[in-house]
Structure formats: structure tokens, C-alpha cells
Amino acid sequence: MKRESLEEFYKIKDLPAPDGLHNGIGHFNVFRIEDCMKPGKDVQYARRDYYKISLIHGNNRYHYADKSIEINGTTLIFFNPQVPYTWESISGDVTGFFCIFTSSFFSEGVRNNLGELPMFVPGSKPSYILDNGQEANVAGIFTKMLDEIGTDYAFKYDLLRSYLNEIIHVALKTEPAESLYDHPSASSRITAVFNELLERQFPIETPVQRFVMRSASDFAESLTVHVNHLNRAVKSTTGKTTTKLISERVLAEAKALLKHTDWNISEISNSLGFEEAAHFNNFFKKQTAITPSGYRNV
């Protein structure tokens, strides 16, 4: 599956790439959507090497991992490098703003880790519908970003980082996030680390990449806990078994690879850790009631 670099972003948008794309403080830039639209050119389904936040008006459809979300109105949507995405306009009239930034830019002088924020966690809800007041607030922040990015102010990136945090907090206040707290128990801490280890194996980007930690025992060994202890902790925290969570994540990746790559079934099967393509077919059909080939051709 294609992965778009910062250099490719500027080339695709036919925009001049700033000097020092990979400097020590990371990269940040902000744009009006309408200034970057190219008639007849679709946004490619791909993972990006950068984070993106968009404030977009109109009727639009987002394809995000294996899900599609159709929204009519004003949406604040968050994209991260772990999840492939694209979007299409249904109304045809697309306006708004977006900013792109790297993890190193955000973390410079900021306490929170991007991976702790719920809108950037793979599998979480990435979009937030805004009312008129929230829309005016976020549009105003983006406008301040656009005004500031072109100045010679010595501390402009500190200011831009504060604007970025302000947008994130608008979303967090719109829908309070249960993941932004200290884990109340040992079970929740073990579950959080299990989820991190699981997500660390994704995305699958080439047919030779292989998903290797496939069982509860594999994760328990890595966490140096007994497998029964891991299973109890995960079940008590999530209501699902460890095996179920692993299967759901493998299935989500399988769907994305089937829909958005030209890899054959054997390549996808192998990359997801199945010894035989027949095992992958049986797994996929048991989960979805349809074969991988049938899903690809829907």
C-alpha cells in the first residue's frame, strides 16, 4: 500500500516545499482546502507520513481504514500516519482548512503524547460534527494559523503549536475522551500495553511484512505475565477476549488490504501470519460470512 511522504504531498498539491522539511523541530503547515483542490484529481487512498487535521464544509464521504463515513455539515476530522484514508466530495463544493504536522513538531515542548489522544488512536472515532459556534471558533483558529505562518516572528512555531492544541481541545470537549486518564487498575494498564503491542505490528505496508504476534500466549510472553492473567485483565477491561481483539484487528487490516491493494490473496494471507491461504479464507469467511475474494469484488 502506498505511503505518502511530506515531499510527495507538496508535489501532488503542486506547492513549493518549504526548506528543512525534516529539521529538528518537525514540520507544520496550514492551508485553505479550496486553494489545494485540483479539478478531476482524486485524493489517493494511502497512509501518510504526517498527521492532518481538517475543518471541512459540505457533504463528504471519508474512507478511513476499512470504514466509510458520510457526513453532511461542518466536520473536524483527524488523520494519523497509522491509518490509510481518502475522502470524496458528494456536494462538489468543498471549502475549509487543514493543517499537516509531524509528531516531532507536536511533541516539542508539549507534555501530551499524540498516541494518547483519542482522535489519533487507530480504531477510534476520527470525526467530530461541529455546531455553528464551534465552527466559528475553529475557523478562527485556522485563520490565525494562516496569518501567523507567513510572519517572521521568532516564536511563531510555539504559537502555532498552541493553536494546534486549542483545536484538539475543542474536539476533546465536544466528546470527552475516556482514554485521557491515569489507568485506575493493573488490569487496565496491562490492557493498554497489550493494545499498544497489537497496534505496533500495523499497518502492513508490503507483502513481505509479517504479523508475528498472533496469539494471547505471544503477547503474554512479551509482557512477561501468565497468559491467564492477561486474558482476565483484557476481559475485565474491554468485555472481549484477547483472541477476539486480535481477530478483530487482523480482520480490519485484511479488509483494508483487500480493498486498497492489488496483492493476491496468498500475499495478504502470508503477511497476516496465516500458514496457508485456506486458513485465511476460513478465518475471513467465519468472521464476515463472505470469502476474501468475494469481499474484494463487492
Rank of each mutant, 00 (worst) to 15 (best):
T191N: 08
A46I: 00
T75I: 09
R296C: 00
L180Q: 14
P39S: 06
H57I: 03
Y45E: 05
Q209V: 02
P126S: 08
D218G: 06
L251M: 12
N270P: 04
S236T: 12
I33N: 01
L130T: 03
F78A: 02
P39W: 03
F155S: 13
F28R: 05
F219L: 05
T261C: 10
P126T: 05
R232W: 06
K2I: 00
L15E: 12
K235A: 14
V121A: 08
M213K: 06
L272S: 06
H279Y: 14
S124Y: 09
S185C: 04
R210N: 11
I33S: 00
S215R: 13
E135D: 09
E8W: 02
E34T: 01
G24N: 14
N112A: 15
Y45V: 02
R189G: 06
M145I: 00
L21V: 06
T191L: 04
F274E: 07
L164D: 03
N113G: 08
V30D: 04
L172K: 05
T174L: 11
G40M: 09
I56N: 01
D49A: 07
S54M: 11
Y153A: 11
A177D: 14
V227E: 14
A254T: 13
I290F: 03
L76K: 03
R189I: 07
E267Q: 13
I33V: 03
E253Q: 13
T206Y: 07
T291P: 00
T241I: 05
E148I: 02
V121W: 01
A46M: 03
M213H: 04
E196F: 03
F28K: 06
S185V: 02
N72D: 15
P84N: 08
T224R: 15
G40I: 05
P84E: 13
I53A: 10
V121I: 14
L6E: 04
I25W: 09
N270L: 13
L164Y: 03
R249I: 07
P39F: 05
L198G: 02
E108Y: 14
K144G: 08
H169D: 14
P203M: 01
S127D: 14
Y50H: 12
H226E: 12
H260A: 04
G109H: 06
